[in-house]
Design a protein around this nucleic acid. Sequence first.
DNA 1: TCTCCTAATACAAAGGTTTGCATAATACCG
DNA 2: CGGTATTATGCAAACCTTTGTATTAGGAGA
Lengths: 345, 345
Amino acid sequence: MKRNITIKDIAELANVSPSTVSRGLNDSPLVAEETRARIQKLALEHGFSFNTSARSLITRKTGIIGLIYPEHFNEYQHSFYLTLLMNKIRDELEEHEYDLVVKFRTNKTGTVNHIRQLVNGKKVDGLILVHSKIEQTDLDFLHENGVPFVLLQARQHYVNINRENWVFVDHKKGGYIATNHLIGLGHSSILCLMLDSPQYQFAERTEGYNQALRDNNIEPDEEKIVICDGTFECSYNLVMQQQELISRVSAIFAQTDIMALGAIEALQGLGLSVPEDIAVVSYDDIEFGKHFRPKLSTIHQPRDQLAVLGCERLLGMLSSDSTIPPMQRLIEPYLIVRESCGAER
Amino acid sequence: MKRNITIKDIAELANVSPSTVSRGLNDSPLVAEETRARIQKLALEHGFSFNTSARSLITRKTGIIGLIYPEHFNEYQHSFYLTLLMNKIRDELEEHEYDLVVKFRTNKTGTVNHIRQLVNGKKVDGLILVHSKIEQTDLDFLHENGVPFVLLQARQHYVNINRENWVFVDHKKGGYIATNHLIGLGHSSILCLMLDSPQYQFAERTEGYNQALRDNNIEPDEEKIVICDGTFECSYNLVMQQQELISRVSAIFAQTDIMALGAIEALQGLGLSVPEDIAVVSYDDIEFGKHFRPKLSTIHQPRDQLAVLGCERLLGMLSSDSTIPPMQRLIEPYLIVRESCGAER
DNA sequence: TCTCCTAATACAAAGGTTTGCATAATACCG
DNA sequence: CGGTATTATGCAAACCTTTGTATTAGGAGA
């Protein structure tokens, strides 16, 4: 591997000291305009770049942000949403010259704890914790080490978030809006296809569902909340197996788009048409929803807003060392009406 | 930010010199078993991790791999496939303790050249170039700097690949298999929905299409190759606008799954059913294909194999400094038969 | 002309690790 | 017991920047 050109080399070429070169390239006001120009020209000519490691070593900044998400989101059915969020985050960070390194967090004992590894190894300047499937002890650890971080997407009920920076989606509101939409269209017997997962956000969606029912004087019915693992197949099978139950409802609130797709596929297989025979509303607004037939009416999660706000705050924390009061934002999701709920009946 | 615990601290605690600690933690045979045990115990107790920057500075290894893809693959219609490939690559690298940093490469003048930036700044140990939308000069630059890299997915026709390491998909073969499948089902008038892009791979798919026709004594018809930008919408609109042309074919070869979905949507809108009235075969095998109605018959790109082989080779190059002859693999895609082509007619 | 100030630059230390070489300690052999 | 391997450890340099402090030169003011 070719030896790289260093500040020293440029210094020699420019007939100045390394420190002057450093200052020149970093636009320090301590260096004469003429000298700076000469240095920068030489640096450009010789394709000089700072050695990232050397620089990090002394500045204690790596220019890398770690993104941690819970391991079970590796599963196919979660990847659609996660990808959209991650891409947006990467774009945001890129604009501020930060790189993103992505890891998942498993709580299996005996496995590496990427959070501690990244922090102890001084690999990252800050962290973005998506879904915060994370132990309270990890958060404490981050505080002890003064590592800036933000929580994104949804809280974990067992985590104390009062002192943290976070941007969450108001999932209860989302569930409420979705259910309310169905009720507004004249449905009163609504099935809730609930995703069972350690993620509190799905319980929140169910809460919203129940609340909407109650607010419209419909008695929630435990039986109509059906648990599913979130896959297309599970959702499909559930509908297929629960035909009696299905016959007693006129609408379904599926907690993710994927689940809606599975359910719709099953319903159609049973000879029911959506939305004519049964309406379906879902959650996430993944891109595919609008290409499906029927086009999905779904709750849009403002993922771009999550990314923008989260990154903004994280970058803010990175640039100012004074402690600023935490930013805690609950973002409201909104309904996108397409075809799967049909018209008022 | 809390001062981190360093090798020196451990050295003091263990009553040895820093160099011994370093050796101990790195499993050097130069250190006594008893000492090593003592050192490792202390390191563990105090949550010690190597400072990545300091380490990189001297070892000249960062443990980071850069993945570069062409800018226009940021567009929605390409994201599905790219994501699948990237995720698999990340997993592979993760297993070998490498991190992945993702950048796109634009050829716009005046913008940063991420390749040079990553290499000059000594930020990465190696590169994975997906689709190699990349200048020959960049490749030359990488060789000059002795940076290991692999090309993945598809070649760019203007790039000289003889001396490079690469794993490409045999796209001509893919186009051939797809078309041949249709012909085997009795179709002789087949539309080719071609994606127009700087990517040579799509031209290759068309070549395969033409070849299959010729091998079956069907005269290729220029008119039946329709150009599309790859979006769902474009594909949809094309079908809608070219009804006369559509009426003269009994099958469509869409060069991506997304294009197939758009086309099918349009066909169904026109009152044609797939596959009964018109058969559709496509390319990519994105996950959604099997949830669509009809389920897509499509060419599977062995992306996991690309990822595995590519990473394997890259890691190989990183660990041995002797130059090994380039690995050049053309992977055969294969057909997955589902519903969209129907039965023999 | 001398002093003092300012502006521009240089010097040197620091950051945490690795590693070639020197040294010390132990064991071996005759 | 002297000498030589052998094993374990320490020393110090190197990796490349950044940055606080010292130095120098030049100009202003008296």
